[in-house]
Amino acid sequence: MDAAQRTGRGDANVAAALTWVVPGAGHVYLGAPIFGIAAFLVVTGLYVLGIRLSGGMAFEFLQTDLRSLIAPVLTPEVGNLSAVIWHMRTYGFGPPFPRPWPEHIELGTFLTAASGVLNVCLACKAHFDARLPRGMRSTRPAPGLLVLAGWVLPGLGHWLQGRRLRGVLVFSCVAGFVALGTALAQGANLDRERHFYYWSAQFLAGSPAWILEAFWGGELVRSDLRYGDAGLAFGAVGGLLNILAWLDVYGSGEREALAHLEPAEPPAARVPA
């Protein structure tokens, strides 16, 4: 056990696990209830807004033979465990007959998925905050924010750490895979209704996937997709590789941040007037 763990605010694994189950619970456990409640409102609010826009029909995208209790485990929504359990218990896979999709279902399912990934970033923050000694702060970027940056733009987390070569390589691989996959699949990969699980993996690639989907998602397929399967694989692998980049950016980010600490309040501020 190192110095940071001995003097930290709580068990880092417990804080992260609590956050996964209920957004903000990890920070309440660490003695930061206001931040915890605010985080809960933002992350769960995003999920609820997504449910309102999609009518809770995200899992109805799945074909009947792909529906099972573990189906939600393979979606980004699982990052917000209590919300996804509530979603499944309240809406599940819908009634046993097809019905029209709500007008903004794509935006709604995007928001529920985004809530799951945001909660993962929040869990990273809870993990780091638990290891941060009381009364201290780091002079380095917060690892949770670096993970968030790496999700929004692949490689940005590495870039902000000053690891520019890694940042460029991560962006090239992740964005390149999603772009190549989109070209091979002629945009068929950009539709959650059409390819539910592949879309889930590709969503983790961040803005390259979102931008492509915003402009070319839902396009009609007008010809034979000779390399459509390869396109789906490229898009999904691009998203999954970004997880590896997040792990790298978080691991090194936490080590760096804990190695560069300073008092949270400057000495002058602690002297009574």
Binding site: Y227, F234, V237, L244, D248
Partner: peptide, 25 residues
Amino acid sequence: IHLLLFALMGVGIVVLASFYSEPED
């Protein structure tokens, strides 16, 4: 073409896995 696509994907996977495993560039 399938071999080329396999090689492309393999390079991406290997590059990111290598950078994940090794702290030094």
